[in-house]
């Protein structure tokens, strides 16, 4: 597999509107209206603020279930996830599974790696060309 770049950093927040307003005011970042929204299957809503060749993703849990809600419950707000763009997400998943790690099936060009593969860091692999 080949890691190409950091696609985005996921940050869990309590109130996405308040957080993006803060980052707009303090860091002059703007929400990308073409990305983000509610994702009921994951129990979250998100918003992306591009910076340079990457972005910050703000993630607000909408339910008290799931890993994002669990993170918010245990740690409050903070960095949650590192998303790395790869050239071939299916090959990357196969590669990591070959090393014995747990990786979810790619869905819409995205696969989530079990934090056990990376000493507790939540990793997402993303293939932009597959989205």
């Amino acid at each position: 597999m080949k890691a190409l770049r950091i696609d985005h950093v996921g940050i869990v927040v309590k109130d996405i509107d308040q957080a993006t307003a803060t980052y707009a005011r303090h860091f002059d970042l703007q929400v990308d209206p073409s990305r983000g929204g509610e994702i009921p299957a994951l129990g979250i809503k998100n918003a992306f603020m591009p910076i340079g060749d990457s972005a910050l993703e703000f993630i607000q849990p909408l339910t008290d279930q799931g890993p994002v809600a669990q993170f918010a419950k245990e740690r409050g707000e903070g960095q949650y996830l590192l998303s790395i763009e790869v050239d071939d997400v299916a090959a990357a998943v196969e590669h990591l599974r070959g090393l014995g790690y747990r990786v979810g099936d790619p869905n819409n060009g995205i696969a989530f790696v079990s934090p056990r593969s990376s000493h507790g860091v939540n990793l997402q692999l993303i293939q932009r060309s597959a989205r």
Partner: peptide, 13 residues
Amino acid sequence: DGIGATHIDHIVI
């Protein structure tokens, strides 16, 4: 404009 941020320079693990 603003703080003049250009990009994420590094991420600390």
